[in-house]
Design a protein around this nucleic acid. Sequence first.
DNA 1: GTTGAAACGTTCATTTT
DNA 2: AAAATGAACGTTTCAAC
Lengths: 158, 158
Amino acid sequence: MPADDALDPLDAAILRVLATDARATFAQVGARVSLSAPAVKRRVDRLRERGVIRGFTVRLDPGAMGWHTEAFVELFCQGSTSPATMRDAVEQYPEVVAASTVTGDVDLMVQVRARDMRHLERVVERLAAEPFVSRTRSTVVLSALVRRPDVPGGPAQE
Amino acid sequence: MPADDALDPLDAAILRVLATDARATFAQVGARVSLSAPAVKRRVDRLRERGVIRGFTVRLDPGAMGWHTEAFVELFCQGSTSPATMRDAVEQYPEVVAASTVTGDVDLMVQVRARDMRHLERVVERLAAEPFVSRTRSTVVLSALVRRPDVPGGPAQE
DNA sequence: GTTGAAACGTTCATTTT
DNA sequence: AAAATGAACGTTTCAAC
């Protein structure tokens, strides 16, 4: 059941402010969107209930955390592997930051963060040893040029 | 100048709480890590100053925002293209959520969010028309299996 | 890092548009 | 139906320890 596509312009404005600073007070958000604090709170509560807002998180500098190596690891899987099996396996790795099933010859695209090349190598070896994985192909990130938080009114400015 | 790699265990614990709920009060965070609210605040302030914390943001459900299509678009670029040129070009697209220069035959890996296939197609065409792009290869996401916020003590539990 | 106190934000019931 | 107001309660923030 997909959530409703139509997003209220006021809700979108509130989400844009929260995307920039998720710890802004309701009064501060209200000042930016011309609403009182209680009005902002009620809309935010409603967006959480509707599932539009999944939560609030901190944005960290990966380098400052000691993660100096990032890679896209493409997994070629045996034909009969279900997405659930893939997820259950890949979720065990703390180094996996994202994983998606994809079209094309590759079956699963996995994004990995590791301390260094040596660490990355070990993770790729473990992924390659998963029973349903027939082959892997890794692409190491040289430099992260753009890394944007999800913002309403980007792709879907209707 | 890369930030210090060694992360205080208490700071790591605070960041884990904030990764789960960035709007938690300092008192709530303090209760989880056995610290008073002012102590938590001082540490968070310091983490911001050090650049470990880049900010706080809201996590949204892409589907609820009307973004039903996601893809990895690989860009093959002319040999003399600088990363700065690539970033300047790719940053103009609101549909681009991430972009990284990578090793291998591909030069730039771009992650795109679009309303639908038709919208994605238009974005890929515009990217392909950039002067420094010689060829593109797109991989459409079928389903996002894992999507984790950055959490300390994942890859770098030392 | 903690405590205590003043300023400020949150939250709810109520009133207004 | 949705927003503003005002008051009670909890949080932030800073000085002092």
